[in-house]
Design a binder for these strands. Structure first.
Length: 429
RNA sequence: GGAGGCGUCGCCUAGUCCGGUCUAUGGCGCCGCACUGCUAAUGCGGUUUGGGCUUUACCGUCCAUCGAGGGUUCAAAUCCCUCCGCCUCCGCCA
């Protein structure tokens, strides 16, 4: 959530941010009104309650008629206090409800616009010229099947569309990617974390995933738990309701978890292969730091993502997303998009967001330093989303005979193997 | 899943049976000041968190906060109910 104090002092800034996001600007005025009601009813409650407490203290000492009179008065006060409390509660709930609907303040540098208005910041490497090499590239599913690495047919049989099995070298490739990614993160000072895949509503709401994207989240109604769409959720909520000493910051965590996404509203999009699936594994970076350090940390997260994709020898570009495509929590977001040869496009492989103190406010996470106790900043960034990375690696490193060259960074985790070879027809099923 | 115990302002802890004197005790830690060649020791003061009012700082003041939420009462850490978490035992189990 945004800072209520800032909203009172500079409502125009919040209005402008809402407008840039393409979200409801009128929320701002409804919230200002509710906040005003909350404060005035709160003041009344405080006064009545103070009077009630004072009189209440006299009762044990009073006698006879004086006591009867006091009891009568305090009984009336008790009623009034209860009523005022109700009003305050209602106004406060209303203000909170509205506050939670307002998106994070858009960063001044973020381009204004919708999904199409992203800005390409950098390009790394160059797409291969398969025509010049004399063959037509196979897509990742075809390659995956040749290698005995990906089985989507049986995934669909067992679990439905957008499910898959990683088999043989496919499974080994995932473990190699995860180990390489975790190694990079640990070398950079991150604490590796294995996190719960099921979380309570407070964790989900606190990270901002129960707003516009709620339909994309799996919910287990019987237990009132959610399947996480990213380990960002359990990592952010790890310090929920805590006050962290400034000298412990930054706290950098590298989480590994499965990620579950309903992909509601993406019917017909990316239906082939494992580019867009309901379940995949991911190594995610998550940082708790001070608001002053947030921007610099965001650049560091982006740098670690670039390092990772470069080490996989993938051609990619860095884009900055426009204001309308930030999601409710991010003030600024960069994606790294890898070249997918058979699509002839760059596609998102990683994404890093600066959520500033937006999630920390919702999750009640603060830092204590000389400035006092105040919300801290949280940031997140993908290190390796396994399935999409497999897509990119297979397609970009394929060879004419259907084999795939293993990037050097992964070789130690694949028993030194330099090439993944297609299964012989005899051993294929 | 069954039975029992526990949850107090950083940590430990008193208070809960029997409601008001709780403005929540004491110790440890921490912060400030004093004293002292330095350190240590000692003394004094401070030390939950949130909200309101005071100009949004300082100072001051009021309210809420004893795991969470309800209830009873003039009055709840204390009595009642529901929920959450932890511990012990039993059962089941990767």
């Amino acid at each position: 959530m945004i800072d209520l104090r800032l909203l009172r002092e500079d409502p125009d800034r919040v209005r402008a941010s809402q407008r840039a996001r393409g979200e409801d600007v009128a929320l701002v005025d409804s919230l200002l009104a509710a906040d005003e009601r909350r404060r005035s009813s709160g003041t009344r409650f405080d006064q009545l309650r103070a009077e009630q407490k004072q009189l209440g203290k006299l009762i044990p000492k009073a006698q006879g008629e004086e006591k009867a009179e006091l009891l009568k008065r305090t009984k009336e006060l008790a009623e009034a206090v209860k009523a005022a409390d109700g009003e305050q509660q209602a106004a406060s709930d209303e203000a909170q409800r509205l506050l939670l609907q307002i998106g994070n303040l858009v960063h001044p540098e973020a381009p204004v616009g919708g999904e199409e208005d992203f800005v390409v910041l950098e390009q790394h490497g160059a797409p291969r010229d398969f025509a010049a090499e004399g063959f037509t590239p196979r897509d990742h599913l075809e390659l995956g099947e040749l290698l005995g690495a990906i089985d989507t047919e049986r995934g669909a049989k067992v679990s439905g569309s957008r499910f898959y099995y990683l088999t043989g070298v496919g499974a080994l490739l995932e473990f190699a990617l995860v180990q390489a990614a975790i190694s990079q993160a640990v070398a950079a000072g991150f604490t590796p974390m294995l996190t719960p895949n099921l979380v309570k509503p407070a964790a989900m709401a606190g990270t901002g995933y129960l707003g516009q994207v709620e339909d994309d989240v799996y919910r287990l109604e019987k237990d009132d738990l959610y399947l996480v769409g990213t380990s960002e959720v359990p990592l952010a909520a790890y310090h929920m309701d805590e006050i962290l000493e400034a000298n412990r910051l930054p706290l950098r965590y590298a989480g590994f978890s499965s990620c579950y996404r309903r992909e509601a509203g993406s019917y017909g999009k990316d239906t082939r292969g494992i580019f867009r699936v309901h379940q995949f594994d991911k190594v995610e970076m998550f940082v708790f730091t001070t608001p002053e350090e947030a921007e610099a940390e965001h650049q560091r997260l982006l740098a670690w993502e670039k390092q990772w994709l470069s080490s996989l020898e993938l051609p990619f570009q860095v884009v900055e997303l426009a204001s309308g495509d930030l999601g409710s929590s991010a003030s600024r977001k960069f994606d790294c998009e890898a070249w997918i040869p058979t699509q002839g496009k760059y596609r998102e492989l990683t994404s890093t967001s600066n959520t500033d103190s937006f999630q920390a406010r919702r999750l009640n996470i603060r830092v204590r330093d000389t400035e006092g106790t105040r919300p801290l900043a949280t940031l997140n960034g993908t290190l390796c989303a396994v399935t999409r990375t497999i897509v990119a690696v297979l397609e970009n490193h394929q060879q004419a005979d259907g084999s795939v060259r293993v990037p050097e960074i992964l070789r130690p985790y694949l028993g030194g193997r330099e090439v993944l070879e297609p299964l012989t027809p005899a051993s294929a099923k």
